[in-house]
Design a protein around this nucleic acid. Sequence first.
DNA 1: GTTAGCACTCGACACCGCTGAGTGCTAACG
DNA 2: CGTTAGCACTCAGCGGTGTCGAGTGCTAAC
Lengths: 348, 348
Amino acid sequence: MLLNERKIRILEAIVNDYIQSAEPIGSRTIAKKYGMGISSATIRNEMSDLEEMGLIIQPHASAGRIPSDKGYRLYVDRLMRRRSLTEDESSVLQQVITENISQIDYMMRETAKAIAVLTKCTTVVSEPRAKRTVIRHLQLVPVDDGSFVLVLVTDSKVVKNHLVYVERAPDYETLQYYSAILNSVLAGRSVEGDGDILEPGTLERLTEQFAGDRRVLAAVLRAARSILTSEDEAHVYTSGVRNILGFPEFSDIGKARDIFEALEEKDMLITMLGRNGSEDIEIIIGEENSLERLRGCSVIKTDCRAGERSFGSIGVIGPTRMDYGQAVSVLDGIVARISAVINALSGG
Amino acid sequence: MLLNERKIRILEAIVNDYIQSAEPIGSRTIAKKYGMGISSATIRNEMSDLEEMGLIIQPHASAGRIPSDKGYRLYVDRLMRRRSLTEDESSVLQQVITENISQIDYMMRETAKAIAVLTKCTTVVSEPRAKRTVIRHLQLVPVDDGSFVLVLVTDSKVVKNHLVYVERAPDYETLQYYSAILNSVLAGRSVEGDGDILEPGTLERLTEQFAGDRRVLAAVLRAARSILTSEDEAHVYTSGVRNILGFPEFSDIGKARDIFEALEEKDMLITMLGRNGSEDIEIIIGEENSLERLRGCSVIKTDCRAGERSFGSIGVIGPTRMDYGQAVSVLDGIVARISAVINALSGG
DNA sequence: GTTAGCACTCGACACCGCTGAGTGCTAACG
DNA sequence: CGTTAGCACTCAGCGGTGTCGAGTGCTAAC
């Protein structure tokens, strides 16, 4: 059957209306609201065709039509327009990025929060864990008599602290001295399979240099190992989970809980975000989702990168009825702005 | 009317049963299940008295009874027993504390998560913000050509990082040198009303010493100010908000959303946790809550301190029907364990 | 190809009446 | 005087029924 212009307009009307109202839409409504110079009877005929093509569905015999997953797919691929962001959206994003650019760890999480607010959907971010975390620099900083901090900068420029408790913390100068020694030995190292950071033999040499403070040495090594291994793990953060409750499709508590539980399974989320094609923004609609428990949802995701550096992946999760246009525009905006800020900084 | 032993037993049975089942409980059920050698008719008479005293309520004429807020109050004050923690509970708590003791910032949040899991309630923690944050120590750590990290240790022993972007980052030795200068000037300082950290006049001296790197100086001061002001603000974290959905009393989506929204108002939560009496653990039941929106809930809270140092407040929020005994025991356990770990560390 | 008209379908809603759990009251009992 | 059995009463919950209205598909006419 041919999908002529008129059928497409009708499909578009159905999708747009349903995204807004969450109610099945009937032929008469379309005729009145989107009046395209044809009567409801004609629209009924067209709708019947659209249904035959699998693009729309009748929830029950005497109800209006709603888009099917296939219908959304066509809408997303051919009808949806990316719009530019509103003043509000734009300023919210700009602010969250510039404010957090100095704490890259937080930036993605804060960005997720902002997206969740803007899209009224749930947002998931995953940090990139492509390779083994490597030490770039470390430094011991005094705190008090019984503790000091190990600050560790990784090759992906993530900065981590770890408080180290010892019986008697070395003084400032000694910590500086130790920092220098450790730096020369540990820079460029990572945790290998067996959990050891040092090259064989190095420990003995270090132990000599730390003569009076073997416990300090041991504690620092332990802390460094703990930072590296925790960094090696993948991280995912969700934000705006409660937005789920705002959608009538999840208004019965059971369905809402299902989603909530699905969102708790970090591993699932990672695989979902991970498998990113070459496209800039990927849209997964309902049944297309490889994760069974999210088949009632759609996911819009993108890899967030500036230049060659990846900041992780962002996914927006909502009902299949979600506002695809907005979500795509927001994600688009995010990536563009992060790129811009990063380039401005590294450029000078 | 006299509250004799038998009435108390009946009240106890009602509370215990209702905490478990969430269903109104009738005289016959009590007679059968908790058979205390009296017939259901007698129990009916007693229940009638308990109702007259305002300790129990009949949701509707032909239903069983449920405890009133006053009934829970009596239960909590006179009948509830603190029990010792189970193996499981104990090990979960122990683990979360020892694992995070090196990142105090995270410890409270992780603890909240653990409590949320154990109690199946929502948990809120607030970090203490008694006084102005004062710099104890700071250190500049290299990252790459265009950035370095400012690590700042506050007097409350919180460690914060802030990435500083500059056109051209100083090298390691220079950063060490700058760190020393800044330390001597900034240690002991805080942000005053007008947002300035430095003593009047100091800026000029510093600017001379940073001759070639005025921008670096400016950027560091900006970063420090930003850390201090953000630390001066109060922080609250919630955990296990989704547990709300597990309780039948919030099974209609409207009520659940109400609570969710109430939990989003940080200021409210802070005042709720803040106003802590002298008692170790405070229990607020339903209508006793000064926050209107949480009148349908009970809150169990405590100030989490080890020695003279406070780590913040913890609150467990659930329906008035929550398992008070467990929540109290868990909070008790947390405080005891944190104390123990901290003492062990500082003791040697 | 388009449209008006009509019969049909079916969910939503309101309105029964029944059932069963639970109560309060009363009278009898020890 | 407290306890108990018995009985009438109440009321939420549930399933069945009837009505209403939105929406459809089909047919015949334009």
